[in-house]
């Protein structure tokens, strides 16, 4: 038994979550499948969004899955790295914009 928290082969068992709660699991996968169908956004655009989000939530399963999905849907390395930078920019920006809250508090308590 692998002792690490993240086991690569577990990604293939994702569907098994229905074993413990079939109804909700099935509804989730039905929704999930439909989300990634081509719509107003192309499959490639959705794969790149998923790749960026995967880096934001730092999910190794999602990073593996959506790197492959991005490649399969014709994304270039440049596009994929730009998606990761979007993720980084939002993460960094979300910290920094809270700096305003810090500044407000400083003003509140300072003489």
């Amino acid at each position: 038994m692998d002792k690490s928290y993240y086991i690569k082969d577990d990604l293939k068992k994702f569907g098994d979550i229905t074993d413990f709660q079939e109804k909700l699991g099935k509804k989730f996968f039905e929704y999930y499948g439909e989300v990634f169908e081509e719509g107003a956004l192309s499959k490639r655009e959705k794969a790149l969004i998923a790749l960026a989000v995967a880096h934001t939530v730092q999910c190794p399963y999602c990073i593996d899955a959506y790197t492959t999905d991005s490649l399969e849907n014709g994304a270039s390395e440049e596009q994929m790295m730009e998606a990761v930078h979007v993720s980084a920019a939002i993460r960094g920006g979300s910290s920094l914009v809270h700096g305003v809250q810090m500044m407000n508090k400083v003003k509140d308590v300072s003489m």
């Binding site: 081509e38 192309s42 499959k43 492959t68 999905d69 490649l71 399969e72 849907n73 014709g74």
Partner: peptide, 11 residues
Amino acid sequence: GAFLPGDQEEI
């Protein structure tokens, strides 16, 4: 590489 081609029309 070791992955499948995606949607032909989109590519």
